[in-house]
């Protein structure tokens, strides 16, 4: 076994994802299969190989620090599930 049901539960908590019992069972089996498949990468010796995070060479992108138009409070709040005045409203944060 590459991954156990309790590890899957732990990962779900890290991902802020509530999973049902049947989802936990299914994902445990499927993730186990996929992780067994990706083990094949270990057949390759990658000592001294530089990891690639981007396919094209990237430099820091700088821009002048100048004020510009933004979309505005009303447009930013237009999709809010709940709002209060000019804020996003959420359930109790301190439990």
């Amino acid at each position: 076994m590459k991954i156990t049901r309790s590890e899957v539960e732990h990962v779900a908590r890290l991902a802020r994802l509530e999973l049902s019992d049947s989802e936990l069972d299914t994902f445990t089996g499927q993730m186990d299969g996929i992780l067994a498949y990706v083990e094949k990468l270990n057949a390759l010796d990658t000592d001294g190989i530089v990891p690639t995070s981007h396919a094209v060479p990237m430099e820091n992108a700088f821009r002048p620090d100048q004020p510009a138009d933004s979309i505005g409070v009303e447009a930013a709040l237009a999709n809010a599930p709940q709002r209060a005045e000019s804020f996003f409203r959420v359930p109790k944060v301190i439990e």
Binding site: V11, E23, F27, M31, P91, E95
Partner: peptide
């Protein structure tokens, strides 16, 4: 929901389908 953390977990449980959940799980792992 009873609080913020539960809101996150339930919102995502209801909002995402199984392929997206599977990939989030794999990636998080």
């Amino acid at each position: 929901v009873r609080g913020l953390k539960e809101m996150f977990a339930k919102t995502r449980a209801e909002g995402f389908g199984s392929e997206v959940k599977r990939r989030i799980m794999l990636g998080t792992y």
